[in-house]
Amino acid sequence: MLTTKDGISIAFHFTPGKTGDAKALGKMIDKLPAESSLYGDSTYTDYGLEDIALERKCILLKIQRKSNVKRVDTLEQKYEKPKMRKRVETAISDIKKMFPRTIHAATLEGLLIKLTLFVFGLQLNKSIN
């Protein structure tokens, strides 16, 4: 899920559990406006994807780095990235709070529709408050 800095969801993509986060992100890059900044945790580390996003649309992928990486962050980036990522994690957690104990769906499509409605419900809740 991609959110604004205020936690408003702007894009999301459902993938099978075996799909890597960086691969899923690659499917959403084209939906972003040019000159965006995107924050993610270390599971999104993919230097090729970072380069492609920058070349195609001037999108900066600000991925939180592990200690043993080739592209090292400045001290400012090391402080900024976790702070921005927390906003996304909070948005996801707010959506999960809206879930009932169980979600009954007879088909995969039905489940995806219900999950999508929870995302929209969070947006409505945020706009009311």
Rank of each mutant, 00 (worst) to 15 (best):
I52S: 08
E109L: 01
D73C: 07
I52K: 15
C58D: 14
E50V: 04
N125M: 13
L25P: 00
H104I: 08
L25K: 03
F14K: 09
L32T: 04
I103F: 02
S36L: 07
M1N: 09
D6A: 11
G110Y: 01
T3V: 15
G121C: 12
Y79N: 07
L32S: 07
I113E: 01
V72Y: 06
D46E: 02
K23G: 00
R56L: 12
P100W: 02
F14S: 07
E55W: 05
D21K: 13
F99R: 12
A106L: 12
F12I: 01
A22T: 09
P16T: 11
T107H: 06
A53R: 04
Y39C: 08
A22I: 00
Y79K: 14
R56Q: 14
V69D: 00
E55Y: 08
H104F: 11
I95N: 09
E50H: 10
L124D: 00
L2M: 14
L108A: 00
S42M: 05
R87D: 06
D51C: 00
K96Q: 15
M28T: 07
R56K: 15
R87Y: 08
I29P: 03
I95A: 09
G20A: 14
I63M: 07
T15Y: 01
A105L: 03
I95H: 10
S67V: 10
G20V: 06
L112G: 04
F14C: 05
